[in-house]
Design a protein around this nucleic acid. Structure first.
Length: 452
RNA sequence: GGUCCGGUGGCAGAGUGGUGAUGCAGCGGACUGCAAAUCCGUGAAUGUGGGUUCGAUUCCCGCCCGGACCUCCA
């Protein structure tokens, strides 16, 4: 079995992955703040996590994958006010949409999906401990983490305290001892969600939830913590500082995984540029599997440029793969073929999905040459990374908005016309079907049809 | 301004201190009544200037260009 190498953001090196407990690999990923539909940038992080967890499950007997939901946040409060709806309605709907979108692109659910609002007690306990051991202080109704009290602060993101001061955008608040100090707990007014606490009615700061919930479900040391590279600072740096100060004998995350950002047509996705794409926007006119494949065509640490052409390419690649699977006599039959070692080995090199896809092309070559084992290998490889979960029939013909019998009648009529060398009629039939989005293919085994 | 990451053929995108994967597109051919699909063949790339080395796309430095982050964006 190939061994997994994984890039670690903290050491900035690709290192051999060694689980703390090989019987139970523990992974924590930052999930969504539920105030709006997931966009394709969010999706990239979720797909990266999904591939990583699928691979870990292939390599190890058990994986515990925790992905949180942030359901208390000022953006949520603001959006609920804008929409004039209760916060609980907004978060419930957004969570449902998020689950639907992820399921559409074959992302498996995490083992545990804790919600911040269900873990206020754990957060308060942690904040109390941080105050007790001198790493946090109360000021102006807030509880703040004192950055100066954690010598390793900045180690994860590779910044020094001086660097942080150099940035002119640090929020200076008069109740902070140092500008870099960040909020653990903040006061809520009567119109804002809040919980009673020793520091008054209030709500948690952003970072504390991940520290509290990862500790609660995975312990003071766990294997992998991941998210988008934009979370490296401040979110993950702050999580780490809190956790290490609260549990000084633990290591918090042993290994940090961050995926690079996604561009749309070469530019950062933003609402003002008008290139902001939700998962739903894309899925309106693209098969979900093509979107997933597009995200896997670049290695997760490379910036990925999302384009319409790229999506079309991905779709074509899937055409080829499903054509290759069509050589299987029993496209749906259960089959225990393991994914080939060369394929797993590619994934084990820091999730090198482009190299893994190149392996799949080689398998497709074999399958298209008539090698049934090649097709089995291809299917097994695809399944490992959440692809090829459909069948050629469904991929090419869909769940039928068309009348198959009618198409077959036309195919028969065309065949008769061709026999009498009436090619004008034969081509007219093909054109007619093409108008309806149906493509005919004359193969050695007869004529078949598919959606355009 | 600070920190970090990256610049590979027309496009997408890997790897590597010693003849530069893979896919799409292109070109030529086979198959086909014509297509589609498939197959065979083929042209085409390491931003720039130095350094280290027998040899650099790979390692080091400068420059240019792009991107991310710098208090709540995956």
């Amino acid at each position: 079995m190939p061994r997994l190498s994984l890039h670690d953001s903290k050491s900035r090196k690709t290192v051999a992955f060694t689980p703390l407990d090989p019987e139970n690999v523990r992974v924590y990923y930052c999930g969504p703040t539920v105030y709006d539909l997931a966009h394709i940038g969010n999706l990239r992080a979720m797909v990266t996590a999904d591939v990583l967890v699928r691979l870990l499950r292939h390599l190890y007997p058990r994986v515990t994958y925790v992905r949180n939901i942030t359901d208390v946040d000022d953006k949520i409060n603001a959006r609920a006010r804008e929409n004039n709806e209760p916060i609980s309605a907004l978060t419930a709907r957004t969570i449902r949409d998020f689950h639907d979108d992820l399921a559409a692109v074959a992302i498996l659910p995490p083992d545990i999906e804790p919600r911040a609002t269900h873990h206020i007690e754990q957060m308060q306990r942690m904040i109390r401990e941080l105050i007790d051991n001198g790493h946090a202080y109360e000021a102006g109704g807030h509880v703040l983490f004192s950055v100066a009290d954690y010598p390793d602060y900045g180690e994860l993101s590779g910044r020094s305290a001086d660097d942080l001061m150099a940035g002119a955008r640090v929020e200076v608040a008069d109740y902070k001892r140092a500008p870099g100090d960040f909020v653990l707990w903040k006061p809520s007014d009567a119109d804002t969600p809040g919980w009673d606490s020793p520091w008054g009615r209030g709500r948690p700061g952003w970072h504390i939830e991940c520290s509290a919930m990862s500790y609660h479900y995975l312990g003071e040391s766990f294997d992998i913590h991941g998210g988008g590279s934009d979370l490296l600072f401040p979110h993950h740096e702050n999580e780490r500082a809190q956790s290490m100060c609260c549990h000084p004998h633990g290591r918090f995350a042993n290994h940090w995984v961050h995926n690079a950002m996604l561009l749309v047509d070469g530019e950062k996705m933003s609402k003002s540029l008008g290139n902001f794409l939700t998962v739903r926007d894309v899925l309106r006119d693209t098969p979900a599997e093509a979107l997933r494949l597009l995200l896997l065509r670049a290695q997760y640490r490379s910036v990925l440029n999302f384009t319409r052409d790229g999506l079309d390419d991905a779709r074509q690649t899937l055409d080829r793969f499903y054509r290759a699977l069509a050589v299987l006599p029993d496209a749906q039959a259960a089959d225990t073929t393991p994914p080939p070692d060369s394929f797993v080995a590619a994934l084990c090199e820091d999730l090198n999905t482009p190299a893994a896809l190149a392996e799949m092309h080689a398998m497709a070559d074999r399958a298209l040459a008539g090698d049934v084992q090649g097709a089995r290998d291809l299917r097994a490889a695809g399944h490992l990374i959440g692809l090829l979960g459909s069948t050629p029939d469904v991929w090419f013909r869909g769940d039928a908005q068309v009348d198959g019998a009618k198409i077959q009648a036309l195919i028969d009529e065309r065949l008769a016309a061709r026999k009498t060398r009436d090619f004008a009629r034969a081509d007219a039939i093909r054109d007619e079907l093409a108008q309806q989005g149906i493509v005919l293919e004359d193969g050695p085994g007869g004529t078949t049809w598919r959606k355009a």
